[in-house]
Write a protein that binds this DNA or RNA. Structure first.
Lengths: 242, 242
DNA sequence: TGCTCAGCCGAACGAACGTTCGTTTGGCTG
DNA sequence: CAGCCAAACGAACGTTCGTTCGGCTGAGCA
């Protein structure tokens, strides 16, 4: 057996919109916790926009303040320092991925379709926020170690969403007994590549075409005979509905 | 036919160790061109080390000067500004890739073996300089547009080295008539992933294991019947020799 | 020996930026 | 309406860092 054990994460259901509370919590001087949440969301949105555009270090606090339409001083009532803004931004980006995939999967039962939809959803969210995905690749290293670990754990959580789909396909006899860990990373890199190599791909196709062409390549040799039949049926159904 | 035309680049043979002369050339006040080359190589080495460790923006000119064991003032006799250092560093990194693959391919005739060796060489060079590969992903965006384009062209050149191997395998009847562009990017991302996801993979295997497991997954469904036979023979030969 | 100048040095400059803090605002309370 | 206070503001501070520039050095030459 080639597959190495992938750690299964159980804290998924417990995470909040801004998780990782406790240890690396963010300082605030404001009491009203609803206000804190609202302001932080506002600042996070502005930070993602600024950091995506110019990068973390070249962006100034003044840039973020202006984008968020608040004063410089206000920012320091809701975060401890500039790095907190980056941490919040990256958490929000990774969290979006973690939210979008289950959302797309909702109500779909067939394992093969679930797999394809998961890949499509992940690629689409990468595509709709290319800059944010690139930001995560560029700036995760700019975080302190413990926070970097938090972000990496969030990536592992997302990967696990894909891994589950793959294992279900194998269990259902639709995929061969492949190297799951390797395949999951191949898929994940494929989804990220739509953002990372947008300068190459976006010239010649849209996301959905990309996913279609990519899957038809990657699934050769992975689908069982049954899987191939099921795939043909799904494609026919897809063509009929849109 | 799914494959889209990949542009073939002919200026490969013309590039020098520090290419892209002409337009975006780098300022110097020193006459002796041999000295300029030596000093720039020295500075480039130091810059790659510093930028890889701490990132481009947090690295100071003082850091690079210290690492290269020269004064601050000397640097400005060989480069115009800090961005020149980044440009030289990224060029050197990408150029190493472009040099290593043909080097590994030298003397190998069998198309399938050439493909496998190219993937292995690319993964190995990514692995031996993980930080440099990550640097290229992080900081290419920190360059001015024209220089960013130069770097992207160098990446395309490297990709083309892989593309040639793939097409040769198809022409030799060892690969099915697959989507070449898609497959090349899948391979390239796979090679980069060894560096980008080192925190995941390096815990459980070495580069060569990674390449072996990755290829055996990606080549299912790509190899023709003949290709599969040839592959088995190559693996047997490989096992005998080392 | 003394002159010259390419190459090198690093103190000094000044702009930019993260962060602070004294002040202002506006709404609630009694 | 007076008194209070959380929230917001933004000028000012102190530091950092890219870049400059005036002077030093030593090899080559007369």
């Amino acid at each position: 057996m080639l597959s190495s054990p992938a750690p299964i994460d159980k804290e998924n259901a417990l995470t909040r919109s801004i998780p990782a509370a406790g240890k690396s919590a963010i300082k605030t001087t404001v009491e009203d916790s609803a206000l804190v949440e609202r302001r932080r969301a506002q600042l996070t949105r502005a930070a993602i926009a600024c950091f995506s555009e110019r990068g973390y270090h070249p962006t100034t606090i003044r840039d973020v303040a202006e984008r968020a339409d608040v004063s410089i001083g206000l920012i320091y009532q809701y975060v401890g320092d500039k790095e907190d803004l980056l941490f919040m931004a990256l958490q929000e980006v990774l969290d979006t991925y973690k939210r979008q995939i289950p959302l797309a999967l909702d109500g779909i039962a067939d394992p093969l379709q679930r797999f394809c939809v998961a890949v499509q959803a992940y690629s689409r969210v990468n595509g709709s926020t290319v800059d944010a995905t690139v930001l995560a690749y560029r700036e995760t290293k700019s975080l302190r170690k413990d926070r970097r670990n938090t972000i990496m754990q969030m990536e592992r959580d997302t990967n696990e969403l894909i891994a589950v789909c793959v294992r279900d396909c194998i269990d259902a006899g639709l995929f061969e007994a492949i190297d799951v860990d390797m395949f999951v990373y191949q898929i994940v890199m494929f989804c990220h590549a739509w953002a990372l190599k947008a300068w190459h791909f976006a010239k010649t196709m849209d996301v959905d075409t990309y996913v279609e062409r990519g899957l038809s390549l990657m699934l050769r040799g992975v689908l069982t005979r049954n899987g191939t039949k099921r795939m043909a049926r799904l494609e026919a159904a897809g063509r009929r509905s849109g």
